[in-house]
Design a protein around this nucleic acid. Structure first.
Lengths: 224, 224
DNA sequence: CTCGTACACCGTACGTCGTACGCTGTACTA
DNA sequence: TAGTACAGCGTACGACGTACGGTGTACGAG
């Protein structure tokens, strides 16, 4: 019934798994993962809902592909520098990317088989550690530790309702402190006051723990 | 129309926010968070779906309450010991609890305002650190670092499709190695082989990173 | 030039979801 | 005895994922 005047638009306007997944990521960035439905996604692509199923077997597969797109965005550890700088680079990049796509974090939990970009990433990180002199088991330990820190930080960051020092100060005054009776929560009150006074910026927190972890790993490079 | 022979069952079989939330946690443990629907939950409680809304304003509020129940299960840092032992205790407990309720991790990301148990927990941890001599800002750093590690580890653990060394060995042989061409992923192959050979048990991984982090924090106890 | 087949895409339909709304029966107070 | 409050329920609505069976266009073979 429809479409009689459209002709060679196909190759340009036509769908593809690429286009579907990329648009899904955009939609999730904009509206959160709960706002991502097959119908809405199809709408954003100017297509019918069922057309998507020619490119993705199910919504689950779509989510898998989205997570892998996110992994593709994370910078691999550069090979030219010392291992600490390289790992810092990739960790900082990972945090940035996960902050840009907060929905990806909650998806990680439920996706059990890593996509190709995830594997490539893991390989590159392991390579960096092994070349720096970490024995196999130590490299595994370091991997777990660093990834735990990065993911856990991103997870906590995603649940913060503020981004900057100013917003923190405003929220502390208006929202937090009122529900924190000073006698029941003396230390949280103390912290909140001190953080606001110091102009605490959560964005700078990441590097502190990261460098501390990297320094703590350094001595393990040559041991068994 | 119904219910004419039931009488004093009310106080025993009657609902309450407690019962609703606890049963929701059980259901989520059993079927995952996707398997938790208001109808199914009501069914498990022998009630109609809409009855739940007398105890929870919305499903969102139910999820908030479930997360707080999980926090209640986490052991607070004991006050009698040195700070490292205390923090180790609570971290180990947190990991256990989160492993028992994997759905809670993905919920953390979307819940922006902490419940009472969460606040009490945070207060206790901060108290422990401050009493151990950490200055306010350092205690904040330590908090972020430790929580990041615990949450991130739990997140990674939840996405593992195996729990024991044996299962890892089996999966490595049957699933992972076949899709990891040795020329493209030399280091992952090396790691997989070494881990299987060493009888690597992911359950022991947690303590390694935890103790490393605790040791790295120790020297910061008295500095500004 | 026709026709068959393959492909890209779509409309409809089903069962499930969260929940707004309004009704019932019971329990207790006046 | 009447009135009120409350616990719980039934129905209904719109949105979801997706099974199924179309329908138009492109293209190679005859």
């Amino acid at each position: 019934m429809p479409a009689k005047e459209q002709r060679q638009v196909a190759s340009d306007r036509g769908l593809s798994k690429q286009r579907v997944v990329v648009e899904a990521v955009r939609l999730a960035d904009r509206e959160g993962v709960d706002g991502l439905s097959m119908r809405r996604l199809a709408g954003a692509l100017g297509a019918g809902a069922m057309s998507l199923y020619h490119y993705v077997a199910s919504k689950e597969e779509l989510l898998d592909a989205m997570v892998d797109v996110v992994f593709e965005e994370i910078e691999l550890p550069p090979e030219e520098t010392d291992w600490q700088s390289a790992m810092r680079r990739r960790a900082v990049s990972a945090r940035q990317v996960l902050a840009r796509h907060p929905w990806a974090i909650s998806l990680l939990e439920s996706r059990t088989s890593p996509g190709p970009a995830n594997l490539r990433h893991h390989e590159a990180v392991t390579a960096c550690l092994r070349r720096a002199g970490f024995p196999v088991l130590m490299a595994t330990h370091a991997n777990w530790l660093l990834d735990s820190y990065v993911y856990g930080f991103a997870l906590q960051e995603a649940s913060l309702p503020f981004d900057t020092a100013d917003e923190l100060a405003a929220m502390a005054e208006d929202v937090y402190l009122p529900q924190l009776p000073a006698d029941e929560f003396p230390y949280l009150n103390e912290s909140a006051a001190a953080l606001v006074a110091a102009g605490y910026d959560p964005a700078e927190e990441f590097i502190f723990g990261l460098d501390l972890v990297l320094a703590a790993l350094e001595p393990l490079r040559a041991s068994a």
